[in-house]
Amino acid sequence: MPKGGAVPKPASGIAAARCDCASAPGVDVDVAASPFRHGARRAAASAPWRLPTWLLGAALPVATLALAEAAVRLGWIAPNLLPAPSDVAEALTQMVRDGVLAQHIVASTLRVAAGFALGAALAVLLGALVGLSGFAAALLTPSFQALRAIPSLAWVPLLLLWLGIDEASKVALIAIGAFFPVYMGVSAGFRDVDRKLVEVARLRGLGRVALARRVLLPAALPSVLTGLRNGLSLAWMFMVAAELIAASRGLGYLLTDGRETGRADLVMAAIVLLAVLGKLSDGAMAAVERRALRWRDSFGGAT
């Protein structure tokens, strides 16, 4: 016992945590310096030795393009199988000069926008209904799960019989592709809301509308936005399938034209444009997601 009979006070807070961690065999943890502390993630992300995110993301595509260019120029790969990136860029430049590139991009973008808006709106309504109502879930879920397993091309003959070869069939096919990811995200988001949140809201006297607006929707919003992003990605995929059927404009038409004329550079140009447009649209949706969910204090994968 220390002199004077004084009993030493036990360490508390961070000091106690340090003592506990230090006494554990094989554990060397400094809680105060842990990356899980508030703000540590931002400090780590802004460390001077870290490369910018955009530079890291561009490293792999640039390396792939350089390798493809070298492989074609050195004769390792036949140009008719994989055109050099410079030849693809020349094909894109020629379409810009001819004034047809913008027409193809606008045609495909408008179809995706219309189909995604239609499919997502219907999916949000039905997904919320299924997520909030056990009766609706028992009634609709088996049918929707069966329809979700149908491949995209299986819808084509039926849509052509019903809607013809005009824009309606293409937009309908894109809407089908966008519907199911959004529906799954919305229904799962509402269904998985913590029951304790709902019970507390009811104890505070919130009505149905206030409960949905102030509790259910914010809690389900991450899953809803994830479903919207997945639905937008599938909308671009289904757009290609729709334009492969019968179209005179669009990126799917470019793919068909390049295949029929044996121009691999045109096919690769269409693929590149699809990748760029898909990335831009997903980036816009991701920006909306970050803004809508800025209240979250999530880990984010940073260490």
Rank of each mutant, 00 (worst) to 15 (best):
P2Q: 10
K3W: 07
K3V: 13
P8L: 11
S12N: 02
A15G: 06
G26V: 01
V27W: 14
V29Y: 11
V29P: 03
D30H: 06
S34A: 13
P35Q: 02
G39H: 04
G39W: 02
A40V: 00
A40C: 03
A43N: 03
A44W: 07
A45Q: 13
R50T: 09
L56V: 15
G57F: 04
L60I: 13
L65K: 11
A66D: 01
A66M: 12
E69L: 09
A70D: 08
A71N: 08
R73L: 15
R73T: 14
I77Y: 10
P79N: 07
N80R: 15
L81G: 00
P85R: 11
S86H: 12
S86F: 06
A91F: 02
M95H: 06
V96F: 02
A102Q: 14
Q103C: 03
V106Y: 02
S108L: 12
T109H: 01
T109Y: 00
R111Y: 07
R111H: 08
G115E: 01
L118E: 08
G119F: 07
A121H: 04
A121M: 14
L126M: 05
G131Y: 06
G131K: 04
L132Q: 12
L132G: 13
S133Q: 07
A136I: 07
A137I: 05
L140D: 00
P142F: 10
F144Y: 06
A149L: 15
P151F: 04
L153M: 15
W155S: 12
L159D: 00
L160Q: 05
I165E: 05
A178D: 08
G185C: 14
S187G: 08
V193S: 09
R195P: 04
L197W: 12
E199G: 00
R202I: 02
L203F: 01
L203Q: 06
G205L: 07
L206E: 14
R208H: 11
A210F: 03
A212F: 13
A212T: 15
P218A: 07
L221I: 00
L221K: 02
V224G: 12
G227N: 06
L228K: 01
N230A: 14
N230S: 11
W236Y: 01
W236A: 03
W236T: 01
F238G: 00
M239S: 11
V240H: 10
V240I: 13
I245G: 03
A247H: 04
L251H: 06
L255A: 08
R259Q: 15
R259L: 09
E260R: 11
A270R: 04
A270S: 11
A275G: 15
K279T: 03
L280A: 13
S281Q: 03
M285A: 15
A286H: 13
A287D: 05
E289S: 14
A292H: 06
A292S: 15
W295R: 09
R296V: 00
F299H: 15
G300V: 12
G301V: 14
T303V: 11
T303I: 08
